[in-house]
């Protein structure tokens, strides 16, 4: 077998795959943040907690005999509905205020949600087994590909590009983009913008929950699984800029891969590399890679 820069290819491709998986979650979560920010002008600090709720919902559903495949649909809907309740109860009161209040409120919500789950389930992880159809893997010659991990990357790509397609290429997406630019005018055309905002928040939260369900068989289901992740996703969002959907997707996957490669070549820095990149991008291009300067 050949070696690349003194690294055995198994390790290299293995980490690359791990990087792609992390990238899938970064992309799904930063996509949700970008969609929510576009409509609500709120940075959803509770996104990590809602990702965790997705994983827990899948875990609860399993107790009722509902397996992974239905959970993939049901859990995001359930968590999305809790998001809609949150928007109606709390967030809609903040649209006239400074954006920072939305950040503070959702931070408080994240503390409450994570606190409640930790109170109930402790901080050790709960196991969630992989669906039988996706256990095992394929030997690709240069690396071993576990089926489930391949599935996560593919599904994440499908969902990300599906979202991009809906927002950029359909009539519904056109309404959304128009309402982002000028909500008053869109309302004058008879479109129910407040309901659209509510559903957008529900959808963004649902994306986070979907990521949570997908993560459940890989990482242990744990009340704090989203707490540190959300900070990395914030850095991803700063690097990509929240102006573009495609930017969020590309940055998410790209940074996941870079993080994976760092694990191979410079393992000590793997936790911090995304933050370092963020600092460099801010110094060179403050608006972010895909952001519009304003």
């Amino acid at each position: 077998m050949f070696e690349l820069l003194g690294i055995p290819p198994q390790a290299l491709f293995g980490q690359l795959l791990l990087g792609l998986i992390n990238g899938s979650f970064y992309a799904l979560l930063s996509l949700g943040l970008a969609v929510i920010f576009g409509m609500l002008n709120i940075i959803n600090f509770a996104h990590g907690a809602q990702y965790m709720m997705g994983a827990f919902t899948a875990f609860f559903l399993l107790q009722f005999g509902i397996g992974y495949w239905p959970a993939l649909i049901i859990a995001p809907i359930i968590v999305g509905i809790t998001g809609i309740v949150i928007e109606r109860l709390f967030l809609q009161r903040l649209y006239q205020l400074d954006h920072l209040y939305g950040l503070l409120l959702t931070f408080g919500l994240a503390l409450i949600i994570q606190g409640l789950f930790r109170h109930q389930y402790g901080s050790s992880g709960l196991p969630y087994s992989m669906p039988a159809q996706l256990s095992g893997g394929h030997n690709l010659g240069f690396m071993f590909l576990p089926n489930y991990r391949g599935w996560v990357v593919v599904l994440s790509l499908i969902v990300c590009f599906g979202t991009w397609f809906v927002i950029e290429k359909t009539k519904l997406g056109a309404y959304l983009r128009a309402a982002t630019e000028n909500p008053t005018l869109v309302r004058a055309f008879g479109i129910n913008v407040p309901r659209m905002i509510t559903l957008t928040y529900g959808f963004g939260v649902g994306l986070a929950a979907l990521a949570g369900v997908m993560a459940a068989p890989i990482y242990a289901v744990n009340p704090l699984m989203g707490a540190d992740l959300i900070i990395v996703v914030f850095a991803v969002v700063v690097i990509g800029g929240m102006g573009s959907i495609m930017g969020a997707i590309v940055t998410g996957f790209g940074l996941g891969v870079i993080e994976g490669l760092t694990k191979v070549f410079f393992p000590e820095a793997s936790n911090t590399v995304i933050f370092v990149i963020m600092a460099i991008v801010l110094l060179l291009r403050p608006a972010g890679l895909f952001g519009r300067a304003n």
Binding site: F37, D98, F234, A235, T272, F275, L282, P286
Partner: peptide, 25 residues
């Protein structure tokens, strides 16, 4: 000097990310 390059929400996220980086250090 890094964080003041952006305003508002971004400023909050950048300071949070820098602090997290130094947490790992």
């Amino acid at each position: 000097s890094i964080a003041i390059r952006r305003q508002g929400i971004y400023f909050a996220m950048i300071t949070l990310a820098l602090a997290q980086m130094m947490f790992f250090f």
